[in-house]
């Protein structure tokens, strides 16, 4: 290797390191689960944080004792080993106490789970169908249906163009929903199993060919919520994003009217309208 090539390689490495560092310094690091945009997603977030902190406290206690022991009970400090090797009392204590902690966790978890299972009395039902590799949305009460496909350009994916802000998380047609209304989401698939996941709505439901699955959401503030297919579904599994746009009811109605008139409107994969 010539000196210049070494210098070049060094330059690239240094540049890379600098880039990585600046990214670290500037990035608004996404470290944690999103509290999301629904009451259920916030409850899940609190549950997640509760269990996380319980684990942290237990961890600090157990590892604290361990490190204290590692520091003090070293042969190099000239200690003689003790000989005890059981204690019924303490063994009962550390079986029963964790049980109680688990029960304390199970109570709120059960409550949230029961709430999540209750998809009754929704005002709008949307059927979501997974295809290799795009989604189809059908609004059952509205006669609106359309495909939603990744809109990031192949050039961006193959590094021939600079990547946009919503790289891989943008689609040609968003799933539009009204805020403040209970929405039932039915998931199914046409070929293999997919999974419809929008973190901000705390919905992740498998889309299984031949079967429909039910979940629901009630979004409280307008916004754009992005997600992805979460079940490996083949080559382009990483390239079938989900974009949900929540808007006030009036705007949603306008959107529905526009969609009904649009030629994008395909109720089924083969355009069931002609029936």
């Amino acid at each position: 290797m010539t000196t210049s090539r070494i210098a070049q390689a060094g330059g690239i490495a240094a540049g890379g390191a600098l880039l990585a560092w600046s990214a670290v310094a500037h990035a608004d690091f996404a470290l944690n689960m999103t509290p999301g945009a629904t009451s259920v997603s916030r409850e899940i977030y609190s549950l997640h944080m509760l269990i996380f902190w319980i684990c942290v406290v237990i961890g600090v206690a157990v590892f604290g004792v361990m490190f204290w022991s590692i520091y003090h009970h070293r042969k190099s400090r000239g200690v003689a080993p003790a000989h005890f090797h059981e204690s019924t009392l303490i063994e009962i204590v550390w079986t029963v106490v964790p049980m109680l902690i688990l029960i304390a966790m199970a109570v709120p978890a059960t409550k949230v789970l029961i709430r999540m299972a209750d998809a009754r009395d929704a005002e709008l039902t949307i059927k979501v169908t997974g295809y290799q590799w795009r989604w189809h949305y059908q609004y059952l009460n509205e006669d609106v249906g359309f495909f939603s496909t990744l809109s990031t350009s192949p050039a961006q994916i193959h590094n021939d163009a600079s990547k946009g802000e919503h790289y891989l998380l943008e689609v040609d047609q968003r799933m539009v929903v009204p805020v403040g209304k209970k929405i039932r989401v039915l998931t199914t698939a046409s070929d293999v199993i997919h999974s419809w996941w929008v973190p901000a709505l705390a919905i992740k439901k498998d889309a299984i060919p031949g079967f429909i699955n039910e979940s629901w959401t009630l979004i409280d503030k307008p916004g754009v919520y992005r997600g992805q297919c979460a079940e490996l579904c083949g080559k382009d599994h990483g390239f079938m994003p989900i974009v949900v746009e929540a808007m006030p009811e009036a705007e949603f109605r306008q959107w529905v009217a526009k969609m009904k008139a649009s030629n994008l409107n395909t109720l089924t994969a083969s355009g069931g309208k002609t029936l």
Partner: peptide, 8 residues
């Protein structure tokens, strides 16, 4: 087990 042993 580590507690009050003589660890190396």
């Amino acid at each position: 087990t580590m507690w009050r042993g003589a660890m190396t």
